[in-house]
Simulated scan of single mutants.
Amino acid sequence: MLAFTSFLGWLWYTRDLRVAVNIAAAVLIITCPCALGLAVPAVVTTASGRLFRKGLLIKDGTALERLAEVDCVVFDKTGTLTMGMPQLSSLEPLDESDRPAALALAQASAHPLSRALAAALVEAGTTPATITDVREHPGFGSRHATRAA
C-alpha cells in the first residue's frame, strides 16, 4: 500500500510516469526485502533487452554484475567490433611479381584478412599463380606450399 500511495503521490506531483514508477519500486524494495528477489531478474531482463536492441548480446545475467568490475576491455580482430569483413586500402607494399603467389595463397585461406587480400588482388586484375599442396594451420597461416613447375 505504501508503494502504491507513493506511486500515486509522485505521479500527481511530477506528472511523470517514469519517475513515479521508479519511486514506487524503490519504496517497494526498501519496505519488502522479498521484492528485491523479484526486482533483480526484472532489471536484468530489461537491461539485457535494451542492450540487445542496441546491438549488444549479453549471454549471462551475471555479466552485467561483473561489468562493474571491468577496468580494461580488449577486442579481437575478427568481428567483435566490426562486421568481420576487412577491406584493403592499398596494394602498394606488394610487388607486382609477388601478387600472383599472394593471390593463390590468399584464396586457399579462410582467414578474413586473406579474403580481403584476395578480393583486392582480383579487383586489381591479378591472375593467381599455380600453387599446390597449400595447407592452412590455424594460428600459423598457410605453410608447406610449393610452386608448381
Rank of each mutant, 00 (worst) to 15 (best):
M83D: 11
P128L: 03
P86V: 03
A106H: 10
R99I: 02
A47P: 07
A110F: 08
A119L: 08
V73W: 12
N22E: 12
T14L: 11
I29S: 11
G84I: 08
R18G: 10
T46W: 08
V134R: 10
C34G: 04
L121D: 01
T82L: 00
A63I: 00
L51R: 02
L57C: 11
P86E: 02
A129F: 03
A145G: 13
F140I: 00
A35E: 12
K59I: 01
L11K: 06
T78W: 01
V44R: 05
T62F: 15
T31R: 12
A47N: 03
R143E: 07
T80A: 15
G84A: 03
E123Q: 15
A20G: 01
R147Y: 04
V40L: 09
T82M: 05
T132N: 09
V74M: 09
Q87H: 13
H137W: 08
P41L: 14
P41H: 07
H111F: 07
K54P: 01
G84H: 08
L94P: 05
F4Y: 15
L56W: 02
V74C: 14
L81P: 01
T78Y: 14
A110V: 15
A106Y: 07
L103I: 06
T45P: 01
L36F: 13
S114Y: 05
L2C: 10
K54Y: 00
F4G: 15
G37W: 02
R135I: 02
R15T: 02
K59R: 15
H137Y: 08
T62R: 15
P41F: 11
T126R: 04
P86H: 03
R53D: 13
T130W: 11
T14E: 14
A104F: 10
L103D: 07
A106F: 04
W10R: 10
S114N: 14
K77S: 09
A120P: 05
L121N: 01
T127N: 07
V43C: 07
A116I: 03
T127S: 15
I30Y: 13
P100D: 02
E69P: 02
P112L: 02
A39Y: 01
G37K: 09
H137E: 03
C32D: 14
G125N: 07
G141K: 07
D16L: 08
H137M: 06
L117M: 15
A42R: 11
P86A: 05
L56R: 03
A63Q: 05
F4E: 14
L57F: 15
T80D: 03
L121K: 03
L81Y: 01
E136L: 01
R135P: 00
V122E: 15
E92G: 04
D16Q: 11
C34A: 12
L64P: 10
L36C: 06
V74D: 02
F52P: 00
A20P: 03
L103Y: 09
S97T: 14
T80L: 10
A20Q: 12
E69R: 12
L51A: 01
V74H: 00
Y13S: 12
A24G: 05
M1R: 13
T62N: 15
P112F: 00
S6Y: 09
T130E: 14
P138M: 00
G49P: 12
T5E: 11
A118Y: 11
L103G: 11
R53C: 05
E69K: 05
D16S: 12
V27W: 06
R135M: 07
T5W: 04
